Amino acid sequence: MTDIKTIDDAEVAGKRVLVRVDFNVPLDGDTVTDDTRIRAALPTIQKLVDGGAHVVLMSHLGRPAGEGFEEKFSLRPAAARLAELLGRDVAFAADTVGEDARAKVAALADGDVLLLENLRFDKREKKNDPAFCEELAALGDLYVNDAFGTAHRAHASTAGVAAYLPSYAGYLMEREVATLTGMLDEPRRPFVAILGGSKVSDKIKVIDALLEKADTLIIGGGMCFTFLAAQGKSVGTSLMEADWVERAGDMMKKAADRGVSLLLPVDVVCADAFANDANLATVSVDEIPDDMMGLDIGPETAELYAEAIGMAKSVFWNGPMGVFEMPSFEAGTRAVAEAVAANEEADTIIGGGDSVAAVNQFDLADKMTFISTGGGASMELVQGEALPGVEALR
């Protein structure tokens, strides 16, 4: 990030500072059910408030149609939660670049905070429409991007607007990029990477990238069955991508050639249906019944994985080991989460997505060195791809 200015480089007193935050939070009616992302933005917001800026926050929430206001995707509950966390009033604009937004921006005094309505109520946001970028830019004197979770999207508020205003990285953006790239470029070794999730096809570039960097690569989740099939094993009715079996075999060979220890399950928890109350069987990966599907790693595998994690000095984890949302299939993911949490010698990074939900579910978040707020963005960074939201700040 040496070629990117941060908010510490900006003179903000009396200036309108347009800040892209990631308030894409889960809601239950008018209540924010998980405020992690709002909390993550607090250091940047507080710095601007203390500096006497007129703080104009903008974010998206969910996937509205882009044809105007939709009640269930309104950011109003996020504004209310932010006000509680900041301990001060947060104004709310009923639109993004319309009359209400312009009037409320004009009314701000030094240290005041305003949140604009959902950016994606305007379809021009996702199209990175130049006219929309200009209308957003007209609301600020400076632009700050603190939304790492959307840095892999080239949208108006994440990339386009940076061309119209002096631009800076917020503290969250700076920390995310520095932490992730730092670990990948110069990890303390042994470096153990843990990948889960359902599909090999979704993680192919990540696996390739990590095979260049890691000492041990642990594979779990639905994607492991494509690797097991590449070893010639029968996987029953488990999720398996036949088109990717050969590629999985190639990756196992690449791991062997590079001296990377690639760990696959030795036993799995199988079920006769995708349901918490299905009939279960814990079997060796050589004995998966033809009429059953694997939905979690087994206890022997969990022990094997925990042992490898325990010896690590750096750990990167993205993706669960099984269907942890169902109690019957949470044990594998819980065991891995507990092993990562127990290794106090290691730098432990949770790379966004379902892994974050898992460490929160098992109440282990405070035992991790760093939890990324961006699943897609962190994966693209691991793959070595440029992030539009970061590049726009250079």
Rank of each mutant, 00 (worst) to 15 (best):
R63F: 10
R63K: 15
P64E: 12
A65L: 15
E67S: 13
G68E: 12
F69N: 06
E71T: 08
K72R: 09
F73G: 06
L75N: 09
R76Y: 07
R76Q: 10
P77W: 00
A78P: 00
A78N: 00
A78Y: 00
A78G: 01
A79S: 04
A79Q: 02
A80R: 04
A80N: 06
A80K: 08
R81K: 12
L82A: 05
L82E: 05
L82G: 11
L82Q: 11
L82F: 01
A83F: 08
A83M: 08
A83H: 02
L85Y: 03
L85M: 15
L86V: 11
G87T: 06
G87I: 03
R88M: 04
D89A: 13
D89S: 12
V90M: 05
V90E: 03
A91F: 09
A91W: 01
A91Y: 13
F92R: 14
F92T: 15
F92G: 15
A93C: 10
A94I: 08
A94Y: 06
T96E: 15
T96P: 14
V97Q: 10
V97M: 15
V97L: 12
G98F: 02
E99P: 09
E99R: 09
D100T: 09
A101R: 09
R102C: 13
A103Q: 15
K104Y: 04
V105F: 03
A106V: 11
A106F: 06
A107D: 12
A107R: 05
A109I: 01
A109M: 03
G111Y: 00
D112K: 05
D112V: 07
V113R: 07
L114H: 07
L115N: 01
L115T: 00
L115A: 06
L116V: 01
L116I: 07
E117N: 06
E117M: 08
N118S: 07
N118H: 10
N118D: 14
